[in-house]
Design a binder for these strands. Structure first.
Length: 289
DNA sequence: CGGAGCTCCTGGGGGC
DNA sequence: TGCCCCCAGGAGCTCC
């Protein structure tokens, strides 16, 4: 949804100016904020693409490659959303957001593209892309389960080769992307699996169940978060409505499991929290972690 | 080299 | 009322 919104509002438009309000938001752009702004000015954006929490807008071939045929590599504006990042399309006269970090204005005088991020975990950078058009910092990120080209069999095989716990693997973006702490807990609950289940014990069938559960969670979240577009508001998180009504275990410590009524427990895991139903999701004997 | 743990950052909220 | 501290979380980094 976010990607679709950006397609609609940013593609084909030429950057008139880039303003970096907070240097930290472009810290991944090695050459600095001034370089980021200078190199972006005058460039035309193309359709948005996404992988995991990365989202990028390729730059139309311009004054990038000096000399060569310029066909094998290019550039893109790469956004990482962190946990609180948003890309907003806002009218030029809309008041600045409290946590406005970067503003792109366009030569057509139309709505601006604004990167807003409370905690500045995320950020923007101008990066090179590989021959496939993939930004180099994104090359190691796996596809997400809703991607038509996601490789189910490959995922199952990789999972079994791992020597770690199932939730740790679900959170590993090199294996599968798009699953954060909340979606992982929800998917594990649906599949009735414990977070510490050794990945080496995951059969092809069990992998399929986990993938199906993750897909169901993601689709449901998208359905609930995808309605706010028409107001020129591109909600990158897109999950707020989902959080309120649909969560089965996440954040529900002490509340009854929606399936069996047992009380949801909270456990510490990877320096954060994990929630599960103690009856539906029994800890395996050979728990990993 | 794979796995595990640490770290970044800020505002909301709970405790006193 | 006000202050302090905990907490959330993606993913790059470091260490083993």
């Amino acid at each position: 949804m976010v990607r679709r919104g950006l397609d609609r509002w940013a593609a084909g438009r030429t950057v008139a100016a880039a303003e970096v309000a907070h240097p930290r938001a472009v810290r991944r752009h090695a050459a600095g904020a001034a370089d980021f702004a200078a190199r972006l000015t005058g460039r035309t954006l193309a359709g948005a693409q996404r992988r995991g929490k990365y989202l990028w807008l390729p730059l139309a071939a311009g004054h990038a490659s000096a000399g060569g045929d310029g066909s094998d590599t290019g550039e893109a504006v790469l956004a990482h959303l962190g946990m609180s990042g948003q890309l907003l399309v806002r009218p030029v006269d809309a008041p600045d957001e409290v946590h406005l970090r970067v503003r792109l204005s366009f030569t057509d005088g139309g709505p601006e593209l604004r990167f807003v991020d409370q905690r500045t975990f995320g950020g923007l950078a101008l990066v090179d892309t590989d021959p496939a058009g993939l930004p180099l910092p994104v090359a190691h990120i796996a596809r997400d389960p809703l991607d038509p080209e996601f490789d189910d069999a490959g995922f199952a095989a990789s999972l079994r080769r791992r020597r770690t716990g199932l939730k740790r693997a679900l959170l590993d973006q090199t294996l599968v992307s798009g699953i954060g702490n909340i979606y992982a807990d929800e998917a594990l609950w649906r599949a009735r699996l414990h977070w510490a289940r050794p990945t080496s014990t995951m059969t092809r069938a069990r992998s399929a169940e986990v993938l199906a559960a993750a897909r169901a969670v993601m689709v449901e979240a998208l359905d609930h978060g995808g309605t706010s577009f028409d107001s020129l508001y591109v909600n990158v998180n897109g999950e707020s409505g989902y959080f309120d009504r649909e969560l089965a275990v996440y954040g529900r410590t002490g509340l009854p499991c929606r399936r069996c009524g047992a009380l949801v427990v909270r456990e510490h895991f990877m320096n954060r929290s994990s929630f599960r139903c103690p009856r539906c999701q029994r800890r395996p004997r050979d728990a990993h972690g």
